[in-house]
């Protein structure tokens, strides 16, 4: 996997999240203020605009550029958190994305940075309810060689994490002001994170099938 692939995944993520635009907006209007999807799509569009200039740059530089772009164009909590994830990942890059253990280490580093930035953990009805279980699962299966199996497992964990936010009371962010009223609604940040992971996993499964 190289910088070209990263931009390819970014495009796939943007496509997948765009497809669910109305659904995410509705989730956010129920427990937030409705801006999440617009911020995320603006950030993805801007990040994709880096492709032309950076497609041949080293992977860690590309991650950092994308992180900075998200940091400076998304705004809100999601901008700060997604940027922290990606910049955190860039710091742990170890010369290759071919090895699942390297990817797992990078992802864990990014997620740890998010936990610190957001002063949050699992169970608080946020995107971390998707991303933390995914980081843990990746570590658990880091020696698995079949990428389609990895993708299936990660997809499942992300899905479960996203759904788990439904019955939670939010204790962080704007949804926390709702108290009990937030119950019964999936967190929009968890949904967009899960969709991004699902998009990557589906692509990995497709690539494997075409081998």
């Amino acid at each position: 996997m190289n910088s070209k692939d990263i931009f390819n995944y970014l495009e796939i993520i943007e496509f997948q999240i765009s497809k669910h635009k109305d659904e995410i907006e509705k989730l956010d209007q129920e427990i937030g203020d409705g801006d999440h999807i617009f911020n995320v799509l603006r950030g993805l569009k801007e990040a994709n605009s880096l492709k032309e200039k950076n497609i041949n740059e080293p992977v860690d530089k590309v991650f950092k550029q994308i992180g900075m772009k998200i940091m400076t164009t998304v705004g809100g909590s999601s901008g700060a958190l997604f940027a922290t994830l990606i910049i955190g990942m860039s710091k742990k890059y170890d010369n290759s994305l071919e090895n699942l253990e390297n990817i797992s280490n990078m992802f864990s580093e990014g997620v740890e940075a998010m936990k610190i930035r957001g002063k949050s953990n699992v169970g608080e009805k946020t995107m971390l309810d998707v991303l933390i279980p995914v980081a843990i699962k990746l570590k658990e299966i880091k020696n698995e060689k079949k990428m389609n199996l990895v993708a299936e497992k990660i997809k499942k964990v992300a899905q479960e994490g996203m759904l788990s936010t439904k019955e939670m009371i939010a204790t962080k962010g704007r949804a926390s002001f709702l108290g009990e009223r937030a119950k019964g609604h999936i967190d929009p940040g968890a949904r967009s994170s899960q969709l991004a992971i699902e998009a990557i996993c589906n692509e990995l499964i497709k690539l494997e099938e075409n081998l």
Binding site: M71, G76, G79
Partner: peptide
């Protein structure tokens, strides 16, 4: 100033 109802960015 950030976008409408969204925090501004660090830059």
């Amino acid at each position: 100033p950030g976008q409408v109802f969204s925090a501004p960015t660090p830059d």
